[in-house]
Design a binder for these strands. Structure first.
Lengths: 352, 352
DNA sequence: CCCGCTAGTCGAAGCGTTTCGACGCTCTCA
DNA sequence: TGAGAGCGTCGAAACGCTTCGACTAGCGGG
């Protein structure tokens, strides 16, 4: 533990008389008095749940503004049984691609704000208790979970929670839960179709590290299935290989692959950590992209863009937005589809 | 939703059997009845704010457990005027080093949980209104802000907010706010001391791009000061140079530097974007690290580690923990120092 | 022997909202 | 012309918790 050093100085307690920022909070009672109406009327003006005359509404809103009224979140939650807060459960497991995670997170926050909700951050390491606590204490109205594993212990808990939830990703048994994700099978197929269209006859999928497949992670497996099916459909020759993430391993894999398959002309890379190594490796081996070998990646835009890679992007923003939308539907009692697969889109750049 | 439920006396619910996860929430009234005590007694057992006999305490805690009671967060917040939630304000500006950001965030969450607080995620793009809203609605008890700019518009607002806050980083005018950060001056000095100890006599600091110094950014300037002072203290020869971030510029700077200072044997790099370029550049110029030139970096571990660089790391976890600790102190009315500087630590790797 | 303590418990008054039912109105239409 | 049907507003009852003051024992000191 690092000791801390204290610099001296003085905490000057500056507190300006600058409107609504400090001091005891304004309550709805004061607004009502100021506007000359009943408390309930103010509430109805603000919620719009009953008709209010234009004149009254204006007076109330004026008072709200001049007094700087903000409803007390706790009181509101208590009375309405709605906290207007959703939980975002983030993994902090290493190995996740952090920038993508962050994009998910911010898109969830932004989307939630559109529905006048805030976001409580839960980390996965608090485990089941965290979820239980947040739900049972009515701290949150619903949950969005990221990085769902195939056999995720949280899923059974979610099923029996009163609070609705939406998963980003698919567990093995998705019965009774709502899931959103990119349609990775379609993404795999799309890459193959693109290469087929470009006239390639022999293509290989370079995927996640072997351990990811063994763990049976959903998206890796689904990409593989889509890829394989599309291979057959388009009558192409090819196969899929796991791929580690260090440069040395990638280089070994790539050179082995090229030696074994002299006819290989297309590569699909679904491994954001390895994709740049693959390119370096090809360069070192004297293969030009796309002349000698076409490369399509399935990865976030901020990886594909600088490398000028043709890619299917991971639409983080869209997924987050969709997840929040679904959660809001569930909160409102609207029916939602159990599974939402976002249609992949391929962006052609310089690598094919 | 389960709206009605008539329970008389002992409620034999499915709830207790299946881990208290579903159905209408248990209230403190039910706990009190079950334990045969007054509601207030239950409250005091749970909060420890009054003496309770061992026997009563045990009975109450038993009831809490068997009923699966979780206090309602809204009601608690309303009655106690404490939400037990703090806000974490994250920038989503591009250009931030995202993995570091993430480490900050998780450490804040973890630390907050230690104090039985949760974390509400606010993104900086909601701007001042977000802060104002969260504070005024009593959604949160306090705020932790990251990525504070020198002339940050949020600082004046914070000064006048009733809710306490802690900044990670220093604004130009830090009067009236509480700040935490790594002690960059000490970090600069530490690098010099390390090189002096290794017998180097001439060392140079490669810092942030010139524009950053011109803008007078706090951490860059503080590193420079520490570096310069330490140079004098240890009787070393040397200077400091700004450093752009593109490879070409770095290469030009480095080769110019080596030409101008044939005696140069140590380099301190405080620029996480440029540090790898510096290494490549030295390699291209045929200088071996550490034989011909020793290099110390001030950068996150995940940059230093793969490059095997001796470095002073940015202690994200510690900063987050410290920020939360300070915020809790302020919430408890304990006095806190206006500025807390974390003592830097140097990790020796292969580059010196 | 009474007084004042302290430890342990209780009852009840809030905390600031939402929401339900009720109450006048004013219209409309039979 | 009188019975509904809205509309617009109000008052009061929740919501589930914390906390304050009060009360009862039991106990040591003057």
């Amino acid at each position: 533990m690092t000791e801390r050093r204290i610099t001296d100085g003085h905490a000057a307690d500056a507190r300006a008389e600058d409107g609504h920022a400090t001091g005891r909070a304004v309550t709805i009672v004061e607004v009502a008095r100021h506007a000359g109406v009943a408390v309930s009327t103010v509430s109805y003006v603000l919620s719009g749940k009953r008709a209010i005359s234009a004149d009254t509404r204006r007076r109330v809103l004026d008072s709200v503004r001049t007094l700087g009224y903000h409803p007390n979140a706790g009181a509101r939650a208590l009375a309405s049984k709605r906290a207007n807060v959703i939980a975002l459960v983030l993994p902090l497991r290493a190995g996740m691609h952090v920038p993508v995670l962050m994009r998910f997170a911010t898109s969830v926050v932004t989307a939630a704000r559109h529905f006048d909700h805030d976001v409580l951050l839960l980390t996965a390491d608090e485990g089941l208790d965290g979820l239980r606590r947040a739900a049972a204490s009515a701290l949150v109205d619903g949950l969005v979970l990221m990085d769902v594993e195939l056999d995720d212990p949280r899923v059974p808990l979610l099923r029996r929670l009163a609070e609705p939830s939406v998963l980003i990703g698919f567990p093995a048994d998705a019965a009774g839960v709502t899931c959103v994700d990119l349609d990775f099978a379609a993404a795999g197929a799309l890459c193959v179709a693109h290469l087929a269209e470009r006239g390639h006859h022999e293509v290989v999928l370079l995927g996640a590290p072997a351990v990811v497949y063994e763990r049976g992670t959903g998206f890796a497996r689904r990409t593989l299935e889509g890829f394989t099916a599309a291979l057959a459909e388009h009558g192409l020759d090819g196969t899929a290989l796991p791929c580690e993430e260090g440069f040395e391993e990638v280089h070994a894999t790539v050179s082995g692959l090229l030696a074994a398959r002299p006819g290989l002309s297309g590569l699909v890379v679904h491994n954001e950590a390895a994709v740049n190594h693959v390119l370096s490796s090809l360069r070192q081996l004297g293969r030009k992209v796309p002349q000698d070998l076409a490369v399509v990646a399935i990865c976030p835009d901020d990886v594909a863009e600088p490398a000028r890679l043709t890619s299917v992007l991971i639409p983080a923003e869209e997924v987050g937005r969709e997840a929040v939308g679904l959660l809001m539907d569930k909160l409102a009692g609207r029916p939602v589809p159990p599974a939402t697969l976002l249609v992949p889109r391929l962006t052609v750049r310089a690598s094919t």
